[in-house]
Nucleic acid binder design. Structure first.
Lengths: 134, 134
DNA sequence: CTCCGTGCAAATACTTTGCAAAGCG
DNA sequence: CGCTTTGCAAAGTATTTGCACGGAG
């Protein structure tokens, strides 16, 4: 109960991102944390998201309908976005995919005539099972 | 010289997108077309981009620094984004990639427990050759 | 005392929209 | 004429930022 305010909220934002598979937006995080931190402000969430992102702790998955969505999971780079309900799921990357991307993520891969790849982002768009079943 | 205004500007926007590899933003298109269509307004560009997108004629490649970037090329779904200068290049998709995605694009692919993939978007981030050479 | 983190509100920046005018068939 | 397209400017919305305050060491 001693470490009072030092990065308490930043910690909470980070942990929330790590503990969910929702790929949250700033506002989602804000609403989720507001009950426990009544004096939390949206600006702080935005500030900390940018900070955590530049520290490499979290990543921006995509911008969906103008809203940035984040992710703290680092092992999988593939996502499935439901075009109908907006849900974002993690997608297990197939094996032949791995053979191509095995060195990506942290390592650098050269593409002739283009440049050096530092990381990649693979997104599938479609209709999730829930939306298929009405 | 007869068909004067019917979708003349929409046509121009579409053709411009087809003829470039720049993956333009709304403003880029606006500036490019403004000399030839002095009465063009930015709102019209935005409107037509949305319209062309919903018609499936063009696609949104990504949102880079809060700015939406479009593409009218349909055969390749992979892009390279330079994190340093913001340039977006088309990337030739490797063979083993094709084996996985050969049916994607228009067709539908099911992912167990997730949903049906309608299309995919693959983006590589890194440093382009120009930026590597200072 | 000094620094970092924050609330609050104003400011940005891109995009969307309402409306009236103009075009096309 | 009826429907579409557009310019213009106002509105909208997500995000960023300036400033002063508060807590920690």
């Amino acid at each position: 109960m001693k470490a009072h305010n030092y990065s308490r909220k930043r910690q909470a934002i980070c942990e929330l991102l790590m503990s969910t598979r929702e790929h949250p937006s700033a506002e989602w995080i804000y609403n989720k944390l507001k009950p426990e931190y009544p004096d939390l402000s949206l600006g702080t969430v935005y500030r900390n998201l940018k900070l955590l992102e530049s520290d490499g702790v979290i990543h921006s998955v995509t911008v969906l309908d103008g809203i940035e969505r984040y992710d703290a999971v680092t092992d999988s780079h593939a996502h499935f976005v439901c075009r109908y309900c907006g849900k974002i799921d993690d997608v297990h990357i197939p094996h032949n995919f791995n053979s191509l991307h095995e060195s990506l993520g942290v390592e650098v891969k050269k593409v002739p005539g283009i440049g050096e790849i530092e990381y990649s982002n693979i997104i599938y768009y479609g209709k999730c099972d829930e939306c298929i079943n009405k």
